[in-house]
Every structure is written in structure tokens, then in C-alpha cells.
Design a protein around this nucleic acid. Structure first.
Lengths: 113, 113
DNA sequence: TCGTATTATGTCGTCATGCGACATGTCGCC
DNA sequence: GGCGACATGTCGCATGACGACATAATACGA
């Protein structure tokens, strides 16, 4: 999909969106994200580890999340935190979806008429 | 992404969703869909022909749209019409997005608190 | 009438991504 | 000691978006 330059908000994949959503209230480590994503999608989406760690790698590369060591934990788990960039991306994506649902509602009503 | 069996509504890609949305009020041929998608996305999404005709082929295969000849037109353009399956898919997808935006709103509020 | 923009449909190769399978190791508990 | 949950990762495959390319009819003005 090609997007105009001044508002080039590429649509997020559902996996990425749910991962960001999971990190929004507080930082989590990988496994906790998997469990949380399953919960917030009402059990609909179960991330495979391939999807999760692949997505996390790309999110780190694009600076939407940062990784830090959880000191308190006995095992050194790698926890992830949203950056302001990541928050902005989520806000933009939410706005995009809202706008689409609005158009969808009116279009489907037209179809009925 | 894995989905539970009883409600296996895979997320639609934005391209597919916009194509279905474009066909919701009335049938259109390929080129008209391209123009309409650009319009309903506020110029944000410009489908390439590769995306469009690839998506149309898959939509035909999954019986979400049907193709028919526009008799009135001088040139025989292939027009596409939504099936009830296609309408159902759009309804499901809209519901999915609404649900995600709701969760997103509450999660982002939590992040601020 | 000639050329050029618009309409219109399609294919191909590449790249990004989701996903299942596999690999590896820890921790708590019976 | 073994077993299930916790935890992190890699690899290969399949799907899909996309730009580039190809082709052709129509419309319209110079």
C-alpha cells in the first residue's frame, strides 16, 4: 500500500498492534506479552513465539520499544517498554481504525438502503 | 496468528477491507474501486494494480465477491459485487476493529494514569 | 489525424511478516 | 527426579502488498 508523505501511517499488523497495546499500561517481558495479548483479544489471538520475537526485534529496530533488564527478578528476563514514538504510533493506529469503522458504518447502511 | 475455531475471523488486510467497503454501496469495476478506495481513505491509501487484482482474485476464490459483465457499458468491464459472505466478513471485521479501539482507549488511559 | 492523457486490466519478482516447528534452559512442585 | 509452566529464541515456508512492467481502448484537443 502506498501512503501520502505527510501522514504516512502505515497500518499496523494486528500482532504488532496488540503487542504495543499490551505494553501501554506497563512494561512486560516477552512471555507476559503473549499471555496478555491472548487476554485482551478475548482468547482470539494467540501469538506464536516466532511472531512475537520477530515483531519485538522489528519494534526495537524502529525505536517503538526499548529493552531493559528486570533487576528485581531472580532470572534475568528482558522487559520491554513503549517509547513515545511507540505511543504515537498506537494513537495514530487507533485513530485510523476509528475512522475506518465510521466509514464502514455509513457504507454498510448505504448498502442496505 | 492463530485463532480459536468457533470465531476464526482472521483480520483482513487494509487493502481487502477497503475493497469490500468500496463495493458495499454498489458494484464497481476494478478501476473504479481503486479511485474509490483512495477517496474513502482520504487519499491515504492508493492501491497498486498488483494489490488490487491480486486481492480481487483471492476474494473471488473465497466467494466474498462475484464478477459479472456490465452490459450497458460500451467496453466490457468486469464489475464486482459483494456476496452475503462478503458482507458478513465486513461486519465481523468492523466489529473486531471496534472492539480493539475500545480496548486501546482504556489501555492508553491506564498508561497515562 | 496525431498524440497524449485517462481509463482499464493484468503479470512478475521482491520484500515483509505471521506462523508452526524445533531448540534450549529455568523454576516450582509433587 | 520428573513434569508442566515459564521463558527466549531460530528457521523455513507461505501469504500478501507493492512497484514495475505490459497492453490496449477511449476521449479529446491541437
Amino acid at each position: 500500500m502506498r501512503h501520502v508523505a505527510d501522514q504516512h501511517s502505515e497500518p499496523l499488523t494486528e500482532a504488532v498492534f496488540l503487542i504495543l497495546l499490551s505494553l501501554a499500561p506497563e512494561p512486560k517481558h516477552g512471555y507476559a506479552i503473549m499471555k496478555d495479548v491472548e487476554e485482551i483479544s478475548n482468547g482470539r489471538v494467540k501469538l506464536s513465539t516466532g511472531t512475537l520475537y520477530g515483531a519485538l526485534r522489528r519494534l526495537l529496530e524502529s525505536k517503538w520499544i526499548v529493552r531493559f533488564a528486570e533487576k528485581e527478578a531472580s532470572r534475568d528476563r528482558q522487559a520491554y517498554r513503549l517509547t513515545s514514538n511507540g505511543q504515537a504510533a498506537m494513537t495514530a493506529e487507533t485513530a485510523r481504525m476509528k475512522s475506518l469503522t465510521r466509514v464502514a458504518a455509513s457504507r454498510m447502511a448505504e448498502g442496505q438502503a
